[in-house]
């Protein structure tokens, strides 16, 4: 599969995430759009790692471990995303307890 297809697919998913962040007001949905953007980047990293493996294979690297680093990076991005979600959802729950809403427009002044 040509790498350009993966690039365009990832850009499309990333842009959908951007549009979601810009147009929605529910803090939870904004958070989910951020997760979608992270996943678009992960998909592109995996595709690039396989592309790197393919070029190394053609150049004579028959053991074929080139490109492992990209997939390790995706693994670490998932680790950081899991930690981020736990803290972020705790912050959203705290915000709901204080202002009884998850609408981000109520947060235009953080100190009320």
């Amino acid at each position: 599969m040509p790498i350009l297809n993966y690039i365009i697919l990832s850009i499309a998913l990333f842009s959908i995430g951007i549009v979601g962040v810009l147009t929605r007001r529910n803090a939870i949905i904004i958070f989910m759009c951020i997760e979608l953007m992270l996943n678009a980047v992960n998909l592109l990293l995996v595709a690039f790692s396989k592309m790197h493996m393919n070029t190394a294979f053609k150049a004579g690297d028959l053991a074929g471990t080139a490109g492992t680093d990209g997939q390790i990076f995706v693994f670490f991005i998932m680790v950081v995303a899991a930690a981020e979600v736990s803290v972020g959802l705790a912050i959203i729950v705290m915000m709901y307890r204080n202002i009884h809403s998850v609408d981000v427009n109520f947060l235009n002044r953080l100190k009320q």
Binding site: P2, I3, L4, Y6, S15, L22, F48, N54
Partner: peptide, 28 residues
């Protein structure tokens, strides 16, 4: 918001569709 996201997508696609790695293939 939708227009801004669409512009970002358009610019990224336009910038990357002539990239040097265009001929490369991700081995499936």
């Amino acid at each position: 918001g939708a227009l801004a996201g669409g512009c970002l997508m358009l610019i990224l696609v336009a910038a990357l569709k002539d990239a040097a790695a265009k001929e490369q293939v991700a081995s499936v």
